[in-house]
Design a protein around this nucleic acid. Structure first.
Lengths: 145, 145
DNA sequence: CACTAACCTACCGTTTCGGTAGGGATTAGG
DNA sequence: CCTAATCCCTACCGAAACGGTAGGTTAGTG
């Protein structure tokens, strides 16, 4: 029950781009240094973000990456679903899961389904811009709501 | 980001005991058959539940396992923390985590902390008895609350 | 005494995780 | 035109976790 480095690094990379938006293209090496991530490893996480049209990569000297849209238009859920993969909390709810015979009477399935929507709502309710604001974003969504 | 079989099987075992409470001791083999879990594998998940005093195991003929307390007194969070381990969604929030240098300025840490409380609230707000009721338990805690 | 069933430990094949290595292909600047 | 910078792509790799198996020992029942 852990978010792996792929999801966390991918998200931090996107945040790094958001923090340096409007400064031209950000070389992977610089982002990796700031985020203290192995450049070669980070490099392997990015293709999925490029292919999804989330970031634009420009080759050659002076190149690098930049966000395509406004930071507020990327939800954390969007980024995690790409980099981490499926956000389903159990295997039987994964997109590629084969149907489970026990589904019709499983006492735990409703809970996992409910948890999945809780997670979706949590991650889709946060944008890169929200995270840049820091803790302030969570003050607006207090635990009691 | 998946709950492993240890947590899921442990929970289903506890639910199986809850469903057969008051019928004496439930042999592991019977519970494993009903839950379609490898008996030998399930056997390896149980010691932590026994040592925590969640279930009582009795050896010899006529023996087996039974819940020690009322099903309503076990939260899903209790069971999962024992069988699955830490419920922290990222490594840096785990109990045994070494302190992260980036914590003071990490843009994602507040989100993970918030998510951890969301998960704790979710799992600690459900008991074995709630799950036995099926979907009804979730009608009482609608998505909008 | 025999049988049942919990208890305990070691092993094992597969997958995932986190990372490294080594090349291309492309572009800006001298 | 050459070179340095930069993205892009694929293959490999050690360690750990996952999910399960095997084979015993201990304890209680009939």
């Amino acid at each position: 029950m852990k978010i792996s480095t792929r999801g966390r690094y991918g998200l931090r990379f996107m945040l790094d781009l958001a923090e340096h938006a409007g400064e031209g293209y950000v070389p992977l090496r610089e982002a990796a240094e700031r985020q203290e991530i192995s450049p070669k490893y980070l490099e392997r996480i990015l293709p999925v973000l490029v292919r999804a049209g989330f970031v634009e990569g420009v080759q050659g000297k002076g190149g690098g990456y930049r966000l395509v849209r406004d930071p507020a238009s990327y939800t954390v859920g969007d980024v995690l679903r790409l980099t981490e993969g499926d956000l389903a909390p159990v295997a039987c709810l994964a997109l590629d899961a084969e149907p489970c015979r026990r589904a019709s009477f499983c006492k735990t399935l409703p809970m996992w389904q409910r948890l999945e929507t809780v997670l979706d709502d949590f991650f889709d309710g946060l944008t890169l811009e929200d995270l840049l604001e820091g803790e302030a974003a969570f003050k607006r969504h207090p635990p009691s709501s």
